[in-house]
Design a protein around this nucleic acid. Structure first.
Lengths: 136, 136
DNA sequence: GCGCTAATATCGTAATACGACATATATAGA
DNA sequence: TCTATATATGTCGTATTACGATATTAGCGC
């Protein structure tokens, strides 16, 4: 907080940053829904795939990664399992734990969505770079 | 779409990007709610402030900027006006139009929140830069 | 075994974005 | 100027979903 009073330039930077974010998120949502997924479902698939430990990620860790409370994560996992996109895998040693793995259907949808997102991020790169540079 | 098959590195880049986004958005939400605002309300205040035309921004343009349908924007404007954060200003020449301006209370809350957000973005800068550079 | 903690699950509730529809104003064309 | 159409905002019912509170099940130290 170097200076408490913000300039118009600061506000504009913040506003444009949020605008870029919303455009990305809006595009992402449209793509996800076209694939029959909610945005959260898509993000969950990506987080599952992107979390490379040796073992599949558990509900609790996934909840943290998605910034969801554990019970919301349980419900999200229910919906994903009902849709046949992930499968619940009980942990072999700790029977309280449940891990999630992508089904082939989940892999497939995620792959298609990820290609779109990667392309979009690459397209956005100059804008993002410009905004970052503006942060003084 | 240079190559249809995505590498683990691609997935991890996407996952980490989303994770960074969620952390930012989560922080933003917490800050907004601490100030008695919903995230959307905060974003609306910022978009109003950041939209520099000669005249205050209208409902329709604001809806587009916030990626909301016009009726959702009307309801959001209702809630903002009820909270005393913005005031509806009928357009002088086109009486269909309604413009929104920040009240002093709105300015004040936005200023406090914006300082927090600018600080956070500056803190995130290295992470964002690294992610952008990873986009090949 | 007993008390305690941790992980997952269940259920009722509230917030809010949307679809469908309604109203008010502007504009073009005969 | 009158009428048809388009545009901007507003209203209302509904559905989705994240959360709080609570419950259940499993591990752990003693």
């Amino acid at each position: 907080m170097s200076d408490m009073t913000l300039s118009d330039h600061d506000y504009r930077t913040l506003a444009e940053f949020r605008y870029a974010l919303r455009r990305f998120l809006s595009l992402s949502e449209t793509a996800a829904r076209s694939a029959g997924l909610t945005p959260r479902q898509h993000q969950a698939l990506l987080a599952i795939k992107g979390a490379d430990g040796a073992a599949p990620i558990g509900l609790g860790d996934l909840a943290e990664r998605l910034a969801l409370h554990h019970n919301s994560m349980v419900e999200l996992a229910d919906r994903l399992a009902d849709s046949g996109l992930v499968s619940r895998i009980p942990d072999s040693t700790d029977r309280r734990r449940v891990r999630l793995a992508l089904t082939p259907a989940g892999e497939e949808k995620l792959a298609a969505l990820s290609a779109i997102h990667l392309e979009e991020l690459r397209r956005m790169r100059p804008v993002l770079q410009r905004l970052i540079d503006r942060l003084t």
